[in-house]
Amino acid sequence: MESALSVLVGLFFAVSIYMMLSKHTIRIVLGVTIFGNAVNLTIFTAGRVLREVPPIIPEDVVTPQTLVANPLPQALILTAIVISFSFFCFLLVLAYRAYQELGTDDTDEMRVAEPKGEGLPPLGY
């Protein structure tokens, strides 16, 4: 199972990185979202997987009696999902606002901070 997941994770990463290498902001945002999923799956896989046994302690016992899924990566991923979601929203709005203000979604044309053919810094004192 883990080896199959590892290959899937690799695929997730490859797709997300390919998307992030695009020139269009919206595709970069999509890439970042997939990247978040890829990272979550990586953590999940690295913590080893068990099928269908959630890390919940049954009633009337104080510790899990059978082997349960590893709770630690789950706790890490749970918060990570929410955070990457807010991050995704932020990037999306940023891309949207940049499109509104600059009239383009091509990163090559966004040159307010680093204008083309910028001169030297001042040579005086």
Binding site: I56, L78, V82
Partner: peptide
């Protein structure tokens, strides 16, 4: 606290 669920999921 005892079953699947919690603040994050509830909030979403």
């Amino acid at each position: 606290h005892n079953e699947p669920g919690g603040g994050f999921i509830g909030g979403l």
